[in-house]
Simulated scan of single mutants.
Amino acid sequence: MGLIVSALGVGIALLSLLWDVWKSRSGGSGYGFIFGRSARGGALHYLKALEGDDGYFDNVPSAGALREGLARGLVEGIVRSYSKKRHRVISGTFDTLAALAFYVGSAYCLIVLVEEWFKGLGKARLVQLVLAGLDFVAPGFVLFELILLIGLVVNMLRVSYLRIRARWYRKASQAREVPITYVRELISTKKRFLFMDATLCSGYYPVVTDQCSAVRSLLAAAYSGGDACELRRTELGQVKEKGYKECVIRLVSAFVRQFIGGRDEDVTLFVFSEYGVTSVEVVNALRNQGFVAYDLGHVSDRERIFMRSITQMTLLWDCDLMGG
């Protein structure tokens, strides 16, 4: 009986944790999301009432403004919900390792519970075979979990070290970072904008560029033009490469030719890189060529936030709901 109670307790705890993880990754709105009840439903209900066939609001001057406000809020709510669900997948090394560690640890707990349950079923041959199999599998899960946890710690230490050095570099360069949450205030409905991944190094996978159509990669422009400089493993190593600044100027010129069309193009650029290091010199090069460019800093461990924000702002701009 005690084993059953313990199993139920562990099961409830695991389900609760899974529920919290799902909510944080999916952007769902709890039980209201599951049963289809949300603020969007209320806005849609009132909008339909204003557009009814009874004609009650046809001669009310403020009804038109109210319809427009409700419709705008409804569209923005749909866009926010879509952007969250569109990018709820795991991204980045830390997310992947953490998810694997959680699933492997949960599987091991399940194996232990099943093993304890089978031990109470007697000495039957089938029971003994199952127990032998569980005894064989369990150490493998323990070893795998240990490797994942070590990987998590190593990754955290590496990222922390690189981020501290990157912060020092940005401070010495007097680089000013614009938070991603303020980008919307800098976008106009009359001026095209573009997000630019300015990461220059070999040990980087462009997650944001890969999933957001509004993002262009500086490295892609470099490779397509055959003008890529020698790449180091990290951004911090790249800035120490001989001729780094000259290389950035060449790559930015290639980027402008390929993705913007020329220096006379009226476009605002929002620049970021993995640790916010190479983005500093890229922003300077863009401004020297006459462009309006803002440095968003590092994207490392913020990939999901960037992807959601970029998707949301792009859709709102396409709907003429962005800026002034």
Rank of each mutant, 00 (worst) to 15 (best):
P179S: 03
G225H: 02
C212T: 05
V153G: 01
Y103E: 08
L18F: 07
M156H: 10
A99W: 12
W22L: 08
F141S: 14
A222F: 01
S38W: 12
L129F: 09
V142M: 13
K191H: 05
A98W: 09
R167E: 09
A172R: 09
G36E: 03
F272P: 02
A49L: 10
G92C: 10
L296A: 03
V292I: 11
D210W: 06
R216P: 12
S273E: 07
E274S: 04
L231Y: 00
T199P: 06
R125M: 02
A220K: 14
Y161I: 12
Q211V: 11
S202D: 06
G2D: 14
A254P: 03
V154E: 06
R232T: 12
R158D: 10
R86I: 02
E116S: 13
T189W: 05
L286T: 01
L134Q: 08
I78Y: 07
E185C: 11
S83C: 14
R40S: 15
R232H: 09
Q174F: 10
G28E: 02
E185F: 15
V159F: 03
R80I: 06
A132K: 14
Y82Q: 10
A39Y: 09
V159G: 00
F94W: 07
S279R: 08
F136V: 15
G151D: 04
A49Q: 06
S29Q: 11
L162W: 03
L269E: 04
M196H: 02
K245N: 15
K242V: 13
V208C: 04
E115M: 09
K190C: 09
G42W: 10
W168C: 09
G69S: 02
S253A: 11
F118N: 05
T189F: 01
Y108N: 13
P139N: 11
I260C: 11
E51A: 07
G120Q: 03
S309L: 04
A254S: 14
C247N: 05
V183A: 10
L110Q: 10
E177P: 02
G42F: 13
G36H: 01
